[in-house]
Design a binder for these strands. Structure first.
Length: 858
RNA sequence: GGGUGUAUAGCUCAGUUGGCUAGAGCGUUACGUUGACAUCGUAGAGGUCGGUGGUUCGAGCCCACUUACACCCACCA
């Protein structure tokens, strides 16, 4: 019988298996989904983030927490608006033509479709979240929280409006924050232009990468300490083409080593120039339209040539102006020049600094608090190194430009009277009350940065600003945030700041950051490279459990993760191995095994229980520390090596004997615990096997208790380790056909620990059939893996054995010398235990040496 | 320019506070098995732990310098 994961998931979802129970009295453990953007499909990175969360949540459920995993999606203002605009444009529909309301209808349509897709995909991942609490960053509750936050911050004086230079996206026609600007190395040119000095035959040469901005030049800056230009400070330069007289100012901003040492100042189109202009009271001339085309109406001294440029694109204008400068003889030099040019993160347009009025949020105090919370350990980053990144950003934080000229998003809750008075309120009604009856109010057209609402996510999803909301009271603050490091500033920092500001509490106590998912050779996945892996295709091909297992094995230290199909194949192999192992025990009747009684044991059952106990310890410790890789590895080795390769193999010889019942009962317990440890990672296969073996219904497995250790007598477990090594040696020797079984056993018996002698029959049983017809008067070597080499020397291969022994003897002697030297040096300096260990190694080596000598000599 | 991370076997990576002869998976070689195993098992080969110097009884791990790669922040002269 196999269980379809999607069916099991649906059944569990429909019957509330993923819902928390605040009445349970258990401690809470809460994870908020980093809401995926409604811009398309989930990618592999999402699959990692979500699986990591789900593993923790499923684990915590089993160890006794009341767990809430809250799902949702993000409206992703600019990205979504861009996608919908593009789609509509393909149909010949344009945003500006249909107007805001109509356009938003289209976006909501898209949202419904896209969010539906995403949530479907999350379900396929096995994401055990409470869907009844699903949220969207623009749903009513969220909108209310956003307005509340805005109004409060405004009333507290932290949100304000200001006219400043912003990063302007001339394609999307909106401001973007500093974080949304990507600097891209771009090949360009450096143009050296000569500006003549007014009333003198001197001239000054400025270098620029953007000659077109000279139309807005209102000064030239030189360094006041620069001997070359010092005497020009206070004089005027004549702007070529226009003839405008602009001031030459002395300012430290001018770097004597860069360019020509003289820099043209265009306050309206460069952040640094803007500052210089302010310091020297230089006029600000905005020469571009919002689409970055030349705008002549702001150039008071425009001549015919300049007027001919009106409406021309900035890059086209650049060419024309350069030609003109050349014609006029003012162009001194053109050098090829590679520099960093700002591009919009979304859409990729070249950013144009632009003087506009925008809303800002002063986050400097919040940033200080956020730093303090992390420094005092109220919030912990995993891995810790990210704390430094976090600090360095917050320490240099700038006012946050929160307004966007987009339609899709939270419209800013500010209302204007016709004469420009501002009322900030949660609704028009409230604003109206403030403004007085009969005053005409219009709402601000702008919307808020997406991250303003996501910054409130951990609170608003639980009911904030209603601090009496049951969910808020019970589940806030949340426990762990798991997300990619790339949104540490955008999102993590904002959530921390907002939460502390509004609630005084950290929104979560732990932030787990993972790296980028790359292909199996560490290359970034990209469409152009064609190495993108679609998680859904993987699920179709390998099954969700194999995919989740693979994700678990790769999620460890917060580094980038290399993901390849072959790894998922390995995951599938592991799951097959597990199924087969269970199958073996089923055939032996494990389902009807007697009740496990820890007082009834044999060596092999104690041994496997001992291994299981330590696996449980290691695994729990690993997962508690978000070491998914270690968790998976521990289980992998326990299941494959200990349980399958050894325990099953050992049991084969005993299962039909008098101890069969004990072995079966033990196997049952071990399997149950294995499945429990695997449930968080491979919930579907484990649940299926759980039901198959009669432990209970598959759907209920999610609420089982976690694996627990079994107290056992461990005094004889090392004998089994010894025995296993003998068995493997026998197999190997048999493979080499060099020794008879009886001879071998005799030798083995001589070196066997007392306690192990009683198991000699097991060895005989286990190996007998395979060795019975080997000729027994032969030769050679059995390795006791612990320390020694046992060597038998029947005549035929004597020489070979001796020469092998000689080689080994050399190594042993070297080792003895080295150990002796070490011990001598350590004397009185190293801890006693370490010296003791060395002494033991030494005596083992000595023993080996005497054995080898005997062989060689005899 | 400022910062962070990484460098360990052919490949992808573990290696926790310094402690015995540095590990895993894949790949590879040999042999065996196909009676739980869509295979599996056993064994072997393969590493001067990027380099140099230092601290230490002892360094893959700590310190200094250095090389290469990746990423982040700042920067349109």
């Amino acid at each position: 019988m196999t269980i379809n994961p999607d069916d099991l998931y649906k059944f569990q979802e429909d019957n509330g298996y993923f819902k928390p129970n605040s009445e349970s009295g258990k401690p809470t453990f809460t994870i908020m989904i980093p809401p995926p953007n409604i811009t398309g499909q989930l990618h592999l990175g999402h699959a990692f983030t979500m699986t990591m969360q789900d593993i923790i949540i499923r684990y915590k459920r089993m160890v006794g927490f009341d767990c809430l995993l809250l799902p949702g999606t993000d409206h992703a203002a600019i990205a979504t608006q861009m996608i919908v605009e593009k789609q509509l444009a393909e149909k010949g529909i344009y945003r500006r033509e249909i107007g805001r309301a109509k356009f938003l209808d289209y976006v909501w349509q898209w949202k419904a479709e896209c969010a539906g897709n995403i949530t479907k995909q999350l379900r396929r991942l096995g994401y055990s979240s409470d869907w009844s609490r699903e949220r969207f960053t623009m749903d009513d509750g969220m909108s209310d929280a956003v307005k509340e936050a805005f109004v409060r911050l405004y009333n507290d004086g932290l949100i304000y409006k200001a006219k400043r230079l912003v990063n302007w996206d001339p394609v999307m026609l909106t401001s973007v924050s500093d974080l949304e600007v990507l600097m891209k190395e771009t090949a360009g040119s450096m143009w050296h232009i000569r500006y003549d000095i007014d009333g003198s035959d001197e001239s000054i040469i400025v270098a620029t990468t953007r000659p077109e901005t000279m139309l807005g030049d209102s000064g030239v800056a030189v360094n006041p300490n620069d001997e070359r230009f010092k005497h020009l400070i206070g004089k005027k330069a004549i702007l070529p083409i226009i003839g405008r007289k602009i001031e030459i100012v002395g300012d430290d901003y001018a770097d004597m080593t860069k360019g020509t040492g003289a820099v043209k100042i265009t306050p309206a189109h460069d952040f640094n120039d803007f500052e210089v202009g302010k310091r020297h009271n230089l006029p600000v001339m905005n020469i571009f339209t919002e689409t970055a085309k030349i705008d002549v109406k702001n150039i008071p001294d425009a001549n015919d040539f300049v007027r001919s440029l009106d409406g021309m694109d900035r890059f086209e204008a650049r060419k024309v102006i350069v030609e003109k400068l050349q014609e006029l003889g003012n162009l001194v030099k053109i050098e090829p020049y590679t520099h960093q040019v700002p591009h919009a993160e979304r859409g990729g347009a070249v950013i144009e600094p632009r003087l506009t009025e925008q809303w800002y949020c002063d986050v400097s105090e919040m940033a200080k608090k956020a730093i303090e919370f992390v420094k005092t350990g109220k919030i912990k980053f995993v891995p810790k190194m990210w704390e430094n990144t976090f600090f360095s950003w917050l320490e240099n934080i700038q006012p946050w430009c929160i307004s966007r000229q987009l339609w899709w998003g939270h419209q800013i809750p500010a209302y204007y009277t016709d004469d420009g008075k501002i009322f900030v309120a949660k609704s028009l009604e409230e604003a109206q009350k403030m403004a007085g009856d009969g005053v005409h109010l219009t709402q601000d057209e702008d919307s808020l940065d997406t991250w303003f609402s996501s910054g409130l996510w951990p609170m608003s999803t639980l009911g904030w600003p209603n601090v009496e909301a049951p969910d808020y009271k019970h589940y806030f603050p949340t426990s762990t945030l798991i997300t990619g490091f790339d949104i540490i500033f955008f999102w993590v920092a904002r959530m921390i700041m907002m939460s502390i500001y509004f609630t005084g509490k950290a929104p979560f106590d732990t932030v787990v950051l993972h790296g980028l998912v790359r292909d199996e050779h560490g290359q970034k996945m990209s469409k152009t490279k064609g190495n993108v892996i679609n998680p859904l295709e993987l699920i179709d091909e390998f099954g969700i459990d194999a995919v989740r297992w693979t994700i678990c094995t790769l999620s460890g230290q917060g580094r980038d993760m290399n993901f390849g199909r072959s790894l998922v194949e390995n995951g599938r192999k592991f799951i097959t191995k597990l199924r087969n192992a269970v199958n073996f025990w089923e055939q032996k009747g494990v389902k009807d095994a007697i009740v496990f009684d820890k007082t009834k044991s044999v060596a092999s059952t104690n041994w496997i229980l001992d291994k299981m106990n330590s696996a449980i310890d290691v695994a729990k410790n690993a997962i508690e520390n978000y070491r998914y890789d270690e968790y998976a590895q521990t289980l992998y080795h326990f299941v494959w090596d200990d349980f399958c390769d050894n325990f099953i193999e050992l049991s084969k010889s005993e299962i039909d004997g008098e101890n069969g019942a004990i072995i079966l009962a033990t196997a049952k317990v071990v399997i149950q615990n294995i499945l429990k440890m695997l449930q968080p990672v491979i919930p579907f296969v484990s649940a299926e096997l759980y039901e198959e073996l009669g432990f209970g219904r598959a759907c209920d497995f999610i609420h089982e208790s976690y694996a627990e250790k079994v107290q056992i007598d461990t005094s004889n477990t090392s004998d089994i380790d010894w025995m296993l090594s003998v068995i493997s040696a026998i197999r190997n020797v048999r493979a080499e056909n060099k020794i008879g079984f009886k001879t071998l056993l005799n030798i083995a018996f001589k070196s066997m620990p007392e306690g192990a002698k009683s198991y000699i029959d097991i060895i005989a049983n286990h190996t007998n059939t395979k060795l019975s017809d080997e000729s027994s008067d032969m030769i050679s070597v059995v390795v006791d893996e612990a320390t020694t080499v046992l060597i038998a020397l029947p005549s035929a291969n004597k020489d070979e054995a001796i020469s092998k022994a000689k080689i080994e003897l050399q190594e042993v002697e070297k080792r003895i010398l080295s150990l002796e030297a070490q011990i001598a040096k350590m004397e009185g300096k190293a801890p006693a235990q370490v010296i003791e260990d060395r002494r033991k190694s030494l005596s083992d080596a000595m023993a080996k040496k005497s054995q080898l000598t005997e062989i060689i000599g005899g």
